[in-house]
């Protein structure tokens, strides 16, 4: 039971980071980012591809990335056990690398499509993300492809049975920081500009703002946040396998969480994420029981796909505004006006 709660909390933290970033891009700025998985994958590349290579050159190990990474893990583990500061430092280094790589990729990958209409934009983003996923899967020189590479265990100094709890706490803390950041950002003049862009791009252009620049900025910030989740997930599982960064898991499900909770409402998205994660984890844990009870002649994962696909459809059909609706922004002048109206009434 305790383990189930910790698993739910961990995935809640990871998915909150991703869905908040998607909410910033889709819910606020109106960018239909069908390539969210790319940014998450970049977080994994930052850990498995870049941080590992830095460590390899620091320790002066030779050999290909897969075998060298395995050696790195045992070397760093000893080091981290003797001095936890190294582990914390490595964690921060990985997160910083993920943010930088995510921001750069986000800004770059929206470039060819920054002037396109919604449908072309969505197609292009999906295509880029899908192709990057394939390349990372087939090319084992980047992050080990489908073989995967090991990553250092940044929490090697924590005893085995408590490792998951501590990691979950770290993830939840970072998700909380992201929540605060996104809320402040979306309540700022920049956030209002994003909403204006979503509603009418021509008006934003007419006020002298560049829609293209806004889109690039939003995609950079959003991708930087989402790649945090990729890095944390890789560090948690001490392994990076490109196959686990699929479109379903990291683009479709985040969209489901955002729409379920309420696009354009950060609190709603958190509620949507929690609802989704509870359902998903329970489905994953009890999949064998479900299969046995329903006498399914197939894997339960297919049932999960059908279920979540239908859930998405019903949300779109019956509750397109989500569980919690988007609310007007209460800036200081509007608060004053509202108080006045209330005073008159």
């Amino acid at each position: 039971m305790e383990e189930i709660i910790v698993t739910i909390a961990l995935w809640f933290g990871l998915y909150t980071i991703v869905s908040l970033s998607l909410n910033l891009e889709y819910g606020f700025a109106g960018i239909p980012n069908f390539g969210r998985a790319l940014a998450v994958l970049m977080g994994a590349v930052a850990v498995g591809g870049i941080a590992n290579r830095i460590l390899i050159s620091v320790f002066g190990i030779s050999g290909d990335i897969i075998t060298a990474s395995a050696q790195i893990r045992s070397l760093t583990n000893d080091l981290i056990v003797s001095n936890p500061a190294y582990g914390v430092g490595l964690l921060l280094l990985c997160l910083a690398l993920a943010v930088i790589l995510g921001a750069v990729t986000g800004a770059l990958f929206i470039l060819p499509s920054a002037k396109l209409s919604e449908d072309y934009l969505a197609i292009t983003l999906l295509a880029i993300s899908e192709v990057a996923f394939m390349v990372c899967n087939y090319n084992i020189a980047i992050i080990g492809g489908y073989y995967g590479v090991s990553t250092p265990d940044v929490l090697a100094f924590v005893p085995g049975e408590e490792r998951m709890v501590v990691f979950t706490a770290i993830t939840l803390f970072i998700a909380f920081l992201v929540f605060i950041f996104v809320r402040r950002l979306t309540n700022s003049p920049f956030g209002r500009l994003l909403r204006a862009m979503r509603e009418n791009e021509s008006v934003v252009e007419a006020t002298g703002k560049s829609v293209m620049l806004l889109r690039i900025k939003t995609a950079a910030i959003g991708s930087a946040i989402a790649s945090l989740a990729g890095a944390l997930y890789s560090l948690y599982s001490v392994n990076v396998i490109a196959t686990s960064f699929s479109r379903v898991e990291w683009t479709f499900y985040p969209f489901l969480m955002v729409l379920l909770g309420g696009a354009g409402n950060n609190r709603g998205v958190v509620v949507g994420t929690l609802t989704f994660v509870i359902v998903k984890i329970l489905l994953t844990i009890y999949k064998h029981e479900i299969r046995a009870i329903l006498h399914l002649p197939f894997e339960a994962v297919w049932l999960e796909y059908i279920l979540f696909g239908l859930l998405m459809y019903f949300v779109l059909l019956y509750r397109p505004e989500g569980l919690i609706k988007e609310r007007p922004i209460f800036t200081a002048p509007i608060k004053k006006v509202a108080a006045k109206i209330r005073g008159d009434a």
């Binding site: 069908f34 379903v248 479709f252 796909y305 059908i306 979540f308 696909g309 998405m312 459809y313």
Partner: peptide, 9 residues
């Protein structure tokens, strides 16, 4: 996209 996932399932 949801339809694609349902069909895949």
């Amino acid at each position: 996209l949801a339809l694609d996932l349902i069909l895949l399932g």
